[in-house]
């Protein structure tokens, strides 16, 4: 067949060697580290196609659009005007706070109308760990930082991407005597993964780590009777935790596990663009499409 022959031909053709670099006539200016400053801002793009992102675009996106579609007849009616409890024109009640009528709106935010444009997708994966030893000495956080760098491959401004923040240190916000936390002291590390690195991490997690965990049934779902009208129910985030021994199953850590002072457990948050009522269920549907198992107790 001509098409398969064309595919084979494309595969066999190698990307030819690159042209010789031009002769340097005038050396580049040097920065304060005596390193040359290029004429253009160099940004490292993708070096290979991303398998899981392709899977999302080929298969998951269509299915999720059909699964999460909610039919609406025509455009939505405009929101009801708020019935004011206190008349702002009355000088006596002019500055009184007008509470919204109809009770708490927490967890009742309506989801945006279904459309092909807002099909649910994974925006980022956030990893987070808290180290109790860091409270006594902040140098104990170094092991967690090194492990997270190996896991995520993130560097601040890495590859010329200014949006890449790298590993960030989490500091205490409030005083909590029970856990010896004071404002400003480092207690843990966090890292946000986006784009191809996010899919790479997801693939590693699904193929190397979760199958090797002992007695891991899947992300445990809350009982069916649990109300979804909570802030987490409408935020479109799926979260779960991994025990410290799970870190040893990541190939990046496994190869030289003895270089780390200890293994760290971590929280993993899959952050999606879903919002409104039922967002968490939609996020679970998306994440399960990447083969993350779920289980009910």
């Amino acid at each position: 067949m001509s098409t398969s022959a064309a595919v084979i031909e494309t595969m066999q053709r190698t990307v030819g060697s690159f042209r010789k670099p031009p002769r340097i006539r005038k050396p580049l200016k040097l920065d304060r580290h005596r390193l040359p400053i290029p004429h253009v801002k160099i940004v490292v793009g993708e070096t290979h196609s991303c398998r899981l992102r392709e899977h999302f675009h080929n298969t998951l996106q269509d299915d999720l659009m059909y699964m999460t579609y909610i039919h609406e007849n025509g455009p939505r009616p405009p929101p009801q005007p708020v019935r004011l409890t206190y008349d702002p024109n009355n000088p006596y009640t002019k500055f009184r706070h007008n509470p919204p009528v109809g009770g708490s709106q927490l967890g009742k935010k309506p989801s945006p109308p279904s459309s092909p444009k807002n099909v649910i997708q994974l925006e980022k994966i956030s990893l987070h760990t808290m180290s109790r030893e860091a409270l006594s000495s902040r140098s104990n956080l170094l092991g967690a930082i090194a492990a997270f760098r190996a896991l995520s491959g993130e560097n601040p401004g890495g590859g010329g991407w200014e949006s890449s923040k790298g590993i960030q240190i989490v500091t205490g916000k409030k005083t909590a005597h029970k856990w010896k936390i004071r404002p400003g002291i480092p207690v843990g590390v966090t890292v946000d993964l986006k784009g191809p690195k996010m899919y790479e991490f997801l693939g590693t997690l699904v193929e190397f780590v979760l199958p090797r965990l002992r007695e891991f049934p899947g992300i445990v779902l809350p009982p069916e009777s649990t109300s979804m009208a909570t802030p987490s129910g409408v935020s479109g985030v799926v979260s779960f935790g991994l025990p410290p021994e799970a870190m040893g199953f990541f190939p990046q850590i496994e190869i030289n596990q003895d270089m780390y002072p200890k293994l760290y457990g971590m929280h993993i948050h899959f952050i999606t663009n879903a919002e409104g009522v039922g967002a968490q269920n939609r996020a679970r549907a998306l994440v399960s499409g990447f083969q993350i198992p779920f289980a009910r107790k």
């Binding site: 494309t10 053709r13 690159f18 490292v44 070096t47 196609s49 392709e54």
Partner: peptide, 18 residues
């Protein structure tokens, strides 16, 4: 996965070199 086109492969090779 899809076989990348010659252009895509040249792009990936260039980025890998950088």
């Amino acid at each position: 996965t899809r076989t990348p086109s010659l252009f895509e492969r040249a792009y990936y090779a260039y980025q890998a070199r950088i």
